Simulated assay, not measured.
Amino acid sequence: MFQNDRYMTCGIKHDINEKNPVTFLLLWNLIDEMEVDENKKDYLQIFVLRAKFDKKNLQEIVHMQEKPPYKKVHRYFTEIPIDAKVYAIDDGEHSTMLLAEEY
Rank of each mutant, 00 (worst) to 15 (best):
T78A: 06
M64F: 03
Q59N: 10
V62M: 15
K55S: 09
H74T: 11
F2N: 00
E33M: 10
P68E: 13
T78C: 15
C10G: 08
A100T: 02
Q3Y: 06
Q45K: 11
W28R: 03
R6A: 01
I31W: 02
F53A: 00
L27N: 03
P69M: 09
P81H: 00
K41G: 00
F53H: 08
Q3F: 08
E18H: 10
E101G: 06
I80W: 03
N4H: 15
V62C: 14
K41E: 06
D54K: 15
V86Q: 10
E66F: 08
D15P: 01
K56V: 01
Y43D: 06
R75Y: 07
L58Y: 01
N17S: 03
T23V: 15
T9S: 15
K56C: 00
E93F: 13
K55M: 10
N57A: 00
N4L: 12
K13F: 07
H14C: 05
R6P: 07
Y87C: 07
D15E: 14
N20E: 09
M97I: 02
L44D: 06
A88W: 00
L26E: 05
D37W: 04
E35L: 11
P68C: 08
V36W: 12
L30S: 06
N57G: 02
F77P: 02
V48G: 08
K52M: 14
H94Q: 10
E33T: 11
D91L: 12
P68S: 10
T23R: 04
